[in-house]
Structures are given as structure tokens and as C-alpha cells.
């Protein structure tokens, strides 16, 4: 086995792949390959003969990698799922971060741990960014709906924007609902009524 670990990252999004590569480069000297195309995944992976394969848990092609853990042909190197009972804390951290790591049998924990620590930290960051992005998107959509509802109220009652918003807010408070939900109901009803 060569002294430098070979790591394959299965990731379709080039930006995300780069984030992971950067984190690994900071953690040590590795031979890193990115696979973005899922066709013939196993063949592509076997071409690199990696020590470690990293893949996003959300990726459906993860099940294909599961088969690598079984490959037992004369030319195949056995790959074991790292996430196992030998290191419950690290496994749980990886799963919670949304990372699956497949590691060749026989590698010592000391050699693999820095790779996984760096990958887990980066996956956690990406997950946080995703959540924040989703929240921002939702807030933006809600803002649009509230604006539309305000417009409807203004036109129907001949009041100004501030009064319309106050009315929506009061209604929401009385009904113990969110303003965005009241606004959505109003927009839907208005659409139904034409």
C-alpha cells in the first residue's frame, strides 16, 4: 500500500465537491479524486482503487456503494463500511452530519480518523448552509405572499399599506396563526373567487 491515502469523493455538485477537497487538503496529504457522474459508478471507483470513499447520505447512489463492501473477486480490494460498531461515536457523528464513508479493510484508525474528522466537519457546515438557504428561501416566499395579501386588502378596503398589514397581523393574532398562513389563505381564496 502506498503511503498516501487515495480518497474518492462521490459528489455531483462541483462546488460542494471543492469544499470537501479543500477541507481534506488542510487535513493532510491525500490523493483525491472526484466522481460527479453516477453512470458506471462502481467501475469508476474501482479504477482509482481508493482507500476511502466519501458520499453524501442523501445521494441515492449510495446503495450502489454498498455493493463494494461485498466485492470479493480476486482483483477487488475489500471495502468495509466504516460506519460500524468499532467506533460508535465517530459513526454517529458521520451519520448525523449526513456522511457515509467506506474504508478499505485493514487501515488503521489513526490514518483514517483525520480524513473523517475533516469530512464530518465540512459536511456539518454544508448541512448548516443548506438549512439556512432553505430558511431564507421560505422567508422570501412568505414575504411575497404577505405582500400580495396586503395588496388584496388595500384594494378591497381602500386602506393604505400600513393599515392593511396591521389588519393581517391582528387577524393572525386573534386566530392564533402565523401572518404568512393567514396571507396564504387569503391569496388562495382570492384566486378561487377569480
Amino acid at each position: 500500500m502506498s503511503s498516501v491515502l487515495t480518497i474518492v469523493i462521490v459528489e455531483a455538485d462541483p462546488d460542494r465537491a471543492k469544499l470537501i477537497v479543500d477541507a481534506l487538503r488542510e487535513a493532510g496529504d491525500y490523493d483525491i479524486h472526484i466522481i460527479g457522474e453516477r453512470a458506471a459508478l462502481q467501475r469508476q471507483i474501482q479504477l482509482h482503487s481508493p482507500d476511502v470513499v466519501l458520499v453524501d447520505e442523501a445521494d441515492p447512489s449510495r446503495d450502489t456503494l454498498e455493493e463494494l463492501a461485498l466485492a470479493s473477486g480476486p482483483l477487488d480490494r475489500p471495502v468495509a463500511l466504516f460506519v460500524d460498531r468499532t467506533d460508535q461515536a465517530l459513526s454517529t457523528a458521520a451519520i448525523e452530519a449526513g456522511l457515509s464513508a467506506y474504508v478499505v479493510d485493514g487501515l488503521t484508525r489513526a490514518r483514517v480518523k483525520p480524513v473523517l474528522d475533516a469530512a464530518i466537519a465540512r459536511f456539518q457546515m454544508v448541512k448548516r448552509m443548506r438549512t439556512e438557504l432553505a430558511e431564507t428561501k421560505k422567508a422570501l416566499e412568505e414575504r411575497k405572499v404577505i405582500d400580495r395579501a396586503k395588496g388584496l386588502v388595500m384594494r378591497a378596503r381602500g386602506i393604505d399599506e400600513e393599515e392593511a398589514y396591521a389588519l393581517l397581523r391582528r387577524t393572525a393574532m386573534e386566530q392564533n396563526r402565523r401572518i404568512a398562513d393567514v396571507a396564504q389563505a387569503l391569496v388562495t381564496s382570492a384566486r378561487l373567487l377569480g
Binding site: 447520505e57 445521494d59 441515492p60 447512489s61 449510495r62 446503495d63 456503494l65 454498498e66 459513526s91 457515509s100
Partner: peptide, 15 residues
């Protein structure tokens, strides 16, 4: 769950 392995792991660690 997006995959069977993901679901198995989620059940395994109690998610």
C-alpha cells in the same frame, strides 16, 4: 429516506 443503506443506518443509530 433516499436509499436503503441510509434508512438502515438511521434506524441503527436511533434517528
Amino acid at each position: 429516506a433516499p436509499s436503503w443503506s441510509r434508512l438502515r443506518d438511521a434506524l441503527s443509530v436511533g434517528q
